[in-house]
Design a protein around this nucleic acid. Structure first.
Length: 459
RNA sequence: GUCCCCAUCGUCUAGCCCGGUCCAGGACACCACCCUUUCACGGUGAGAACCGGGGUUCGAAUCCCCGUGGGGACGCCA
């Protein structure tokens, strides 16, 4: 195990979204790539907005994405570690000690009931037009941030800032830095929105007399439509939504890592082991990336298509169960239906509607399609021929059905196409779906005959 | 308003660090054609970009400066 220690430090104050997931992912990838340690730390110092439900959502989402943590709150196989507790709400004593250190060193003072971090330098007052008030500034040299992705960044941090609120609770900047020191974090990989906080953090490290860790500020994910970064309120922003809709986590992870990182060549679909092997900080981009749900859907389809048969069936079953669409049928029948449709759908969420007619005779008939099919050729005659065929044909496999239907068409001097549309309408009610002979085979003789006859009778 | 970051097809991006092999490559999306049993998948092809202006250089997508545009931060939120 290398000495690299990275952390993902979410706060349970809202839904877990794409941006957080990618920050977690990049940290996880870096830890796995370097053989280091991935720490999960819960930044729950905002008592007003914390919720246990959001906390559980973080655990669930990370687990679903496969981002296991080595140290952190102990959940299942994850967690534990020598630097706990890993919830900031349980670390008050530690913060108190560190604040005392600053006080003793003359680097913190009390004002208005709060504790402020003290910058070293000559003080002067100035009126801030934007904030409409007079503020005390300190003459200090700019803070230098050596960022692994941005390079050298300079920023002036010239005002004292609050580190402990008047209610006694420490603020983000303080606890973030204290915990990173206490947990011996070596690399801080976080969103670029934190870049301007970093000058405060570097000042605090200096105040504690500790060399800051490596910083790596990754680009932000921009919302698909409209301006600005993606937030939890945006369309498609929530991880739980993808989970609910039956997206494959591998696909989402693969898509996410390509937002702001690339392997340096044209490869896109890669197994996670390969991504771990290739991922490194120099490969991370500097510019923000716009979220594209079409590309994600495509990635999901690619993964679905490549799924081994039994795994796909299991996933389909789980999805049907979860959204209460599972109709009690023989497992072999369910399996046959799913495998017939696997190459046809873009996602698991399409499956229930796409396969509905396999599970009920009372399926919806698309009237537009019906009118169209019935208006062309001699659908009634074809239907009658199909009924006879279905009564006698060999339903053993899709191939035997195809053979039988081809033979019928040939004997009438017609083509496969002359039967396909009307047959499909009769047994499925639509004009889209898998191979019609595949449907016959899966449906079996009894159902096929019944549906063809019903349609014929309905003329 | 101040400060910080960024800038290649509509989108994600390769190329940029180490200037010439780039009249800029791939993927998604879009369009056409092929395959075909409908719809997809797949295959082939088309259209589509170096933000603008200055410099440096024999030569710049690549280096420098300015402008513009995009993003972020300016809380006793995280």
């Amino acid at each position: 195990m290398s000495s690299v220690r990275v952390r993902f430090a979410p706060s349970p104050t809202g839904f877990f979204h794409i941006g957080s997931a990618r920050t977690a992912l990049f940290n996880w990838l870096y830890a796995r790539h370097t053989g280091g340690t991935f720490i999960l730390r819960i930044e729950d110092t905002d008592k007003e907005r914390n919720s246990e439900a959001f906390l559980n959502l973080i655990y669930d989402s990370l687990a679903w994405l496969g981002l296991n943590w080595d140290e952190g709150p102990k959940i299942g196989k994850n967690g534990g570690g020598d630097f706990g507790p890993y919830r900031q709400s349980e670390r008050s004593d530690i913060y108190r000690d560190y604040v005392a250190k600053l006080m003793n060193a003359g680097r913190a003072y009390e004002k208005d009931g709060a504790i402020w971090f003290k910058l070293l330098g000559e003080r002067y007052e100035v009126f801030d037009e934007h904030r409409k008030k007079t503020v005390t500034k300190v003459k200090v040299p700019p803070v230098v941030i050596e960022d692994r992705i941005r390079g050298r960044v300079e920023r002036l941090e010239d005002e004292d800032f609050v580190i402990v609120r008047s209610d006694g609770n420490p603020v983000f900047h303080l606890v973030n830095v204290v915990d990173d020191i206490a947990m011996q974090v070596t690399h801080i990989i976080r969103g670029e929105d934190h870049l301007s906080n970093t000058s405060k953090h570097v000042a605090l490290y200096e105040g504690f007399g500790v060399k800051p860790p490596e910083f790596a500020h990754i680009p932000l994910i921009l919302k698909q439509n409209g301006p600005g970064k993606m937030s939890k309120r945006d369309q498609g922003a929530l991880i739980e939504e993808y989970q609910r809709r039956g997206y494959l986590p591998e696909a989402l992870v693969n898509f996410l890592c390509l937002l702001g990182w690339n392997p340096g060549d044209d490869r896109e679909k890669m197994p996670i082991d390969e991504i771990v092997r290739l991922f490194d900080l120099p490969g991370v981009n500097q510019s923000n990336a716009r979220f594209d749900d079409k590309k994600l859907a495509h990635m999901n389809m690619a993964y679905l298509l490549a799924q081994p048969a039994e795994q796909f069936v299991a996933q389909a079953r789980e999805y049907f169960t979860r959204c209460e669409k599972l109709i009690p049928v023989a497992p072999e029948y369910f399996r046959a239906v799913m495998l017939l449709c696997q190459p046809k759908v873009k996602g698991l969420e399409e499956l229930p509607a796409y396969t509905a007619y396999f599970f009920t005779d009372d399926f919806v008939i698309d009237q537009k399609v019906r009118d169209k099919v019935m208006a062309k050729g001699e659908p009634k005659a074809r239907l009658a021929e199909l009924v006879e065929l279905a009564k006698s044909a060999d339903f053993t496999s899709e191939a035997t059905m195809t053979e039988a239907l081809k033979k019928l068409a040939e004997s009438k001097g017609l083509g496969f196409g002359d039967y396909q549309a009307v047959a499909r309408l009769a047994v499925t009610g639509t004009n889209v779906g898998p191979s019609i002979t595949g449907i016959f085979h899966v449906l079996g003789r009894e159902r096929t005959v019944r549906r063809l006859e019903t349609c014929l009778t309905g003329f």
